[in-house]
Computed example of a mutant assay.
Amino acid sequence: MPYYLDWIRNQKEKKIEIDFSRGNQAIVELLLQGLNTKQKQIVQLAACCRWFDRPVIQYLIQRKSINFETGASDNLNCFDWLNQCDFVEFVEGRYRLDDVARDVFRMSLYHEGRSQFRETHELLAKYFEQLANKEVSPDSPPPAKYDNADWREYTAEFLYHALFARRDEGQRQFISHLFASRYLNQLEVVIIPFAAITAEASVENYQLLPDQTGKLLKKITFGFIFGWFMLSKDPAKYEINYENGTGPSKDKIEAAIKLCFDQVDSLEDGLGKYAALLYKSLRSRSNQRVHLLQQAKAQAEIIASDSNPEFSSSLFFNLGNVLGNLERYEEALKSFDQALTIKDDDPDLWNNRGAALGNLERYEEALHSFDKALAIQ
């Protein structure tokens, strides 16, 4: 807006009839004024970043075979030269291009070559993935990752860039983290990239995303915003009541959620797939539920580790509860027993095991489980 208003003021001072169709192009010309080809390229790289610091600019510049020290200026390295530009601002301890400049330069890179645009976002996805992996080893249990604030921040940036760069794979990674972050109640891992992209879409209407990714994010908006807390609930057992104003119906929310469940089979093994199968089972016919829960159990066996017994035990505990609600008491008992082999001092686990045994009319064993629960708590 400031650039646009300045252009209008300039036209009026020159008593030129204002042609508003020329306004955006005039802003582009204004921002490009005085930049040589190499400097324009550097700014386009920075425009792909939601924010930048010296290391990320140096990483991008070097990957593009530009000399970091002299590529933009004989007197300033590329990072210091960027910070001298009028359209670069320092906000909350980080550098970024202001919104207008970022839109202009990022769009110009996209129009010059989509492959180059996606390649830049792929470089940034790898950069933040590497930072996340340095913060917490990829082999660590999921809670060690999601409980680490720096890992969550780097992973959010990774997902943002992966959605622009990786087409189908970017979607799968985003959806996997959606289910995993819901299971561990760490919203920002997915809400940060989602909110950033949907905000940008108000300007470019998802144009910069791969076509199918843009369509998916657009369709799941209601499900993502309103359905976050509904994922772990049986749709037959919850209602939506808006205290102030109105929102989408439960049917619309569930329809959006379903689009995420459609990709469950293509997700990589891990917590995201486990949680997706668990939540999908709540929305399936009874004859399909047990099959989905068996798949979820196979995922739990892959994920479970001795290094985090509480988390690992909870994977089987939650499965046992869902199976119990389906009156599949034998399967529920097996899940509870599996949980107990990992962690045997949880009173809720012994209590629910006792309930399953009681429903199987194995009362002496049930009494023993209840006594174990009481001994602990």
Rank of each mutant, 00 (worst) to 15 (best):
270 G>I: 02
145 K>F: 09
259 L>F: 12
299 Q>D: 03
83 N>G: 00
368 H>V: 10
10 N>A: 13
346 D>Q: 13
59 Y>T: 02
351 N>I: 01
28 V>I: 14
70 T>C: 01
337 D>N: 14
307 S>C: 03
369 S>R: 03
202 S>A: 14
292 L>G: 06
273 K>G: 02
352 N>P: 05
101 A>N: 06
42 I>M: 06
44 Q>L: 08
244 N>D: 11
317 F>N: 05
355 A>P: 00
295 Q>E: 13
9 R>F: 08
342 I>C: 03
231 L>W: 06
319 L>F: 06
191 I>H: 14
187 L>V: 12
140 S>A: 15
69 E>M: 06
82 L>R: 10
32 L>R: 11
351 N>F: 14
285 R>H: 14
143 P>A: 02
226 F>N: 12
223 G>T: 11
11 Q>D: 08
226 F>G: 02
269 D>Q: 11
302 I>K: 15
352 N>D: 08
376 I>H: 04
209 L>C: 06
342 I>T: 04
65 S>R: 14
122 E>I: 06
206 Y>H: 10
326 L>Y: 09
365 E>Y: 05
54 R>P: 00
235 P>K: 05
100 V>R: 12
235 P>Y: 04
252 K>R: 13
83 N>V: 09
46 A>Y: 04
376 I>D: 02
285 R>S: 12
232 S>E: 13
373 A>L: 03
149 A>E: 15
196 A>Q: 14
268 E>H: 09
168 D>C: 01
292 L>A: 04
298 A>Y: 09
128 F>K: 01
306 D>R: 12
58 Q>E: 15
356 A>G: 06
139 D>K: 14
104 V>Q: 03
40 K>G: 01
210 P>A: 02
309 P>A: 08
367 L>H: 00
83 N>L: 03
27 I>F: 07
301 E>Q: 15
291 H>Q: 14
45 L>R: 03
176 S>P: 00
110 Y>K: 11
44 Q>H: 05
7 W>H: 12
276 A>Y: 04
356 A>L: 07
252 K>H: 10
76 L>R: 10
270 G>W: 04
56 V>T: 11
94 R>T: 02
26 A>R: 13
156 A>D: 05
127 Y>H: 13
193 P>K: 02
81 W>A: 06
100 V>Q: 14
32 L>S: 09
164 F>L: 00
342 I>M: 04
170 G>I: 04
97 L>G: 00
295 Q>W: 05
160 Y>F: 15
238 Y>W: 07
197 I>G: 05
348 D>T: 07
334 K>N: 09
156 A>K: 03
274 Y>T: 03
247 G>D: 04
331 E>H: 14
341 T>L: 13
1 M>Y: 08
241 N>F: 07
245 G>W: 07
141 P>C: 05
113 G>R: 07
210 P>T: 10
223 G>K: 09
174 F>R: 05
47 A>S: 11
344 D>H: 05
87 F>N: 02
117 F>S: 06
219 K>G: 01
241 N>T: 11
314 S>Y: 10
270 G>D: 00
282 L>F: 09
36 N>V: 01
295 Q>A: 09
372 K>I: 02
90 F>S: 10
